[in-house]
Nucleic acid binder design. Structure first.
Lengths: 350, 350
DNA sequence: GTGAAAGCGCTAACAC
DNA sequence: GTGTTAGCGCTTTCAC
């Protein structure tokens, strides 16, 4: 294999414009100390020759790689891809992240890492060594993993934690999960529901507790009891179905249920059907995430949207801002989703 | 910003193992001319120090970047992401491509490029200059773009063309579109249909013609006419609906329709409903792609699967094989999808 | 089989 | 303001 060389390098541009390499470098990086006339001349040469700097060389010379990693849980991501159920978390991240990166001359690279493994530290260290990313975006459940956070901090890599509470290193970005659950609960309360069940997600996801807190808070404020109305699952279909069967088996079953994921809500729908209950006439259902599956369900599910694209876009912007020397926000950045009201919710039977 | 340096470099390993840089390099790259004992010693040092070579430095020194680009159409991809209809082409590419790349020490990077633009050449040249990928995977409609092919060829970059016919540079990989359309048609013929309509895709996609040919071939072999049974769309919902209304407006309308995409099939479903037709009782429907939307439709659609993950995985393997000096396959590599029979197809009314 | 030297394309540090 | 110098971490070439 022949040595693959750049066809047009900074040298060619420097020669063409009759300046030094350094001046060209300064123009490329929008650095000060270049006369406008020079800038102009260099820009012309760049355009004429079609010069584009090599990412690898930029990384080698300087401190930047122009690479931002989107770290997702390997098992869950692959399982979602294989299942082909329309889970579009990754797509929404790419939508928000790639486009925003591109606007700033960065690239977003998706990386899958094994959460539950004790090898995670070694795995991530290897990725960092190989890629030398300028920034990393952590998604649940990685967002709340202290091992990852301290490793990134050690390496002095800017990082964002999506769905995380504030505190600790990194930029915390929240999708207002507690408020969202509150909003969902209030929607049901407004419809006249009094017994509202809640299916929480797994404990290793911080958002699980946040959502449950929102529901509890809204119930409390409405002066309603919530004992025996909480069940929990693992975000997947089967667990949603089972949790629903448990809730419906109570002596006074709920007239509405909020599930912490679309998939659990679909499981809840199935459970309701098994029990001969009509949704929404006998049981109202609200889900979280608003992935395509929620829209395609019958009936279409009322769902709390997760503004993943917007959050990822913001995460990229904040990382790049931090790279440019601006301070990272201390308080968590909150980007709330909307409640998409569809036909799985209705007033309870009287 | 402080200069970001590698924590463990080839130098550290060389020092630890008491050998030269070159010997370490040889071990990393599995090159000959190193005694087994040396290999062993170097491997131990690598493991002990947790050394991982820097991609950027590997690219700078040698000929490889260990990067493979997956080139997708920008507008269509973004539109699909925004629509959130469960289109999972990108996900399936990542599933097949990322995992296979990882297995060989490569990374897959998704890149969106504007197809229709005349700037495509410049845009792609810039991407090549910046990233210096070792390989590129072209997806429709890029697969059939001669400008892209010749540019990659010039730069001596290995590339695969998914959904392309053979001939020309690059590795052609086909999902057996003609055979698939034939298979879909035969399925309907076996059910007893005689008038089978076909909604083709847009002309700039080579697969459009291939699929139409498969349908025509099967009809011809069955001794059936197909005049007035062909309509065409742009792969999207509205065009599928309109094409169906046209086909159903004929004096002797079809009893079955094959749509060249899931979205057009959903449009066809809507059109049938508008005309008061029941699917499958009055009209059988088969779609192409088998994205999640086909499964979630009512009734679930019989669909020709596109084995995108498998094809992408194969494309990565062939590109890496070519990089290692093996010859690229001359004939197109064919990976056929299966016909997923669901409840949108049934015998015609007698 | 192994090592020393040169260079990939770029930027940081420093001189002017 | 601008140019010069010295690397970054690796592979290639060529000598031994």
């Amino acid at each position: 294999m022949a040595r693959r060389r750049q066809s047009v390098t900074i040298k060619h541009v420097a020669a063409d414009a009759g300046v030094s390499l350094q001046t060209v470098s300064r123009v490329i990086n929008n650095e000060p100390n270049v006369r406008p006339a020079m800038v102009e001349r260099v820009r012309e040469s760049i355009a004429k020759l079609g010069y584009v700097p090599s990412l690898a060389a930029q990384r080698m010379g300087g401190s930047r790689s122009y690479l931002i990693l989107a770290l997702n849980d390997r098992d869950r991501t692959i399982a979602d891809w294989r299942a082909r159920q329309g889970t579009d978390w990754v797509d929404q991240m790419l939508l928000g992240g790639m486009l925003t990166c591109a606007r700033h001359g960065y690239r977003l690279l998706l990386e899958l890492v094994d959460t539950h493994s004790d090898r995670i530290e070694r795995e991530l260290a290897a990725t960092i060594a190989a890629l030398q990313p300028d920034g990393v975006i952590l998604t649940p459940p990685h967002s709340d993993n202290p091992v990852i956070a301290s490793l990134l901090d050690q390496h002095d890599i800017a990082f964002a934690r999506i769905g995380a509470q504030g505190g600790g290193a990194g930029i915390a970005l929240s999708m207002a999960d507690e408020a969202g659950a509150r909003r969902a609960t209030e929607h049901l309360l407004a419809l006249g529901h009094r017994r509202i069940g809640f299916i929480a997600g797994p404990d290793d996801y911080a958002v699980s507790a946040q959502r449950a807190d929102g529901w509890r808070g809204a119930m409390r404020e409405a002066g309603l009891p919530y004992d025996g109305l909480l069940a929990s699952g693992d975000f997947d279909y089967a667990s949603g179905r089972e949790a629903t069967l448990r809730l419906l088996g109570a002596t006074v079953p709920p007239s509405a249920i909020i599930a912490s994921s679309d998939k659990m809500a679909i499981g809840a729908l199935a459970a309701a059907r098994e029990r001969g209950l009509d949704v929404p006439a006998d049981l109202s259902l609200v889900s979280f995430d608003d992935t395509p599956i929620a829209r395609f369900a019958h009936p279409p599910l009322t769902a709390m949207e997760q503004p993943i694209a917007a959050v990822t876009a913001r995460a990229v912007e904040l990382i790049i801002a931090q790279l440019s020397g601006r301070a990272r926000p201390v308080a968590p950045v909150v980007i709330a989703g909307e409640l998409m009201v569809r036909t799985s919710t209705a007033p309870p039977r009287v």
